[in-house]
Design a binder for these strands. Structure first.
Length: 336
DNA sequence: GACGCGTGGTA
DNA sequence: TTACCAAGCGT
């Protein structure tokens, strides 16, 4: 039947048929805060960065706190990196916070840029985040490729695609009328239906044109990255008095910008640290990072004249250090 | 392109 | 317990 006179119907035949995904999204999108209320591009950026490699349930409270503390990039630029890290502590991947702070300083009072290319140049914003902000906040036709989209497209095609090929496929699929919603829909279907394990192919709106769903094992795609976790022996020293704990400012990539207990790993450095004062072993704590397993020998030592102790509540610390301190406190309580 | 970077949940 | 994984980025 011909369309009614005066109504223009646009069908983009160059785009592969992905019927029903936006309908599915309109029906099934989770009521996330930024879908219920209007948020600024800055608040949206905070969410994108916090949610990088971080679960929704973990990230949401951080987002609420950080957007409340820093409603604009200028408010963050006017504060210190350490105060941002205080709000970020426990969330992991602290380079995200350090880069976010750099970004706020770089903006120097200006608004976020709106184009993918300009966003991509900012500290801490890579291809995914640039596409997410450009499309969701500014309505630009750029496709997001995150872990979900990678999985969805790999399974649709039943292929192990390179990053450039994935981006290109995602661009071809993009709905140009609702690019932001389309990107969120692709991620949402990956998160809720096309899950890493036990995907719900029987309820998936894309099932009819998904090659993986017709195979014996849809989980075969995408290729997994091999994760070898090294085992590392480390040592920490707890020096405690009525004022608090002896803490040092961590430098470098690992936990940089946070405070922590005197720490060393590896044979040479560990023995150097232990030789620097009179110590007593009180036990061991295990802590896992993605790429290494730390077996941490916990030592205690008496306060000396030069030690400046402080309250561990007053400074940003990683979960690793808080875990060791909990162990120390439990040990103290057992003694008394 | 591969690797380093946190943390917590799940099978 | 182990292995895998989650809205990636920088080097």
């Amino acid at each position: 039947m011909a369309p009614s006179v005066g109504i223009a119907i646009t069908l983009d035949d160059s785009r592969p048929y992905m019927g029903g995904l936006l309908d599915w999204y309109d029906q099934n999108a989770r009521p996330l805060p930024w879908r219920i209320q209007k948020v600024t591009p800055w608040e949206s950026l905070l969410a994108e960065i916090i949610l990088q490699q971080t679960r929704m349930e973990t990230g949401l409270p951080y987002w609420e706190r950080i957007r409340a503390a820093y409603p604009t990039p200028a408010t963050l630029a006017a504060d210190t990196e350490e105060n941002l890290l205080r709000l970020w502590q426990g969330c992991g991947y602290y380079a995200r916070a350090r880069n976010l702070y750099k970004l706020a300083k770089t903006l120097d009072g200006e608004d976020l840029p709106e184009s993918y290319d300009s966003l991509l140049k900012m500290p801490g914003i890579g291809p995914y985040t640039a596409a997410a902000i450009a499309s969701i906040s500014f309505g630009q036709p750029v496709a997001c490729v995150d872990g979900n989209v990678r999985r969805v497209i790999s399974r649709l095609r039943a292929e192990h695609l390179s990053d450039p090929d994935l981006q290109s496929e995602a661009n071809d699929l993009l709905d140009h009328n609702r690019p932001g919603d389309w990107n969120q829909a692709m991620m949402e279907i990956g998160s809720l239906v096309c899950t890493p394990r036990n995907p719900s192919c029987d309820t998936c709106p894309l099932e009819s044109n998904c090659l993986a769903s017709k195979s014996s094992n849809p989980e075969e795609w995408p290729l997994r990255r091999s994760t070898k976790q090294a085992q590392i022996d480390a040592v920490v020293i707890v020096v405690s008095d009525s004022n608090g704990i002896l803490l040092e400012a961590r430098k470098g990539r690992t936990l940089g910008g946070l405070w922590g207990l005197p720490y060393a790993e590896g044979e040479v450095e560990s023995s150097e640290l232990l030789a620097s004062r009179k110590v007593k072993l009180i036990g061991k704590v295990r802590h896992d990072f993605t790429h290494k397993r730390l077996d941490i020998a916990v030592y205690i030592s008496e306060v000396t004249e030069n030690d400046e102790t402080r309250s561990p509540e007053s400074v940003p610390m990683a979960t690793l250090d808080r875990k060791v301190l909990r162990f120390f406190r439990a040990h103290e309580n057992k003694q008394s």
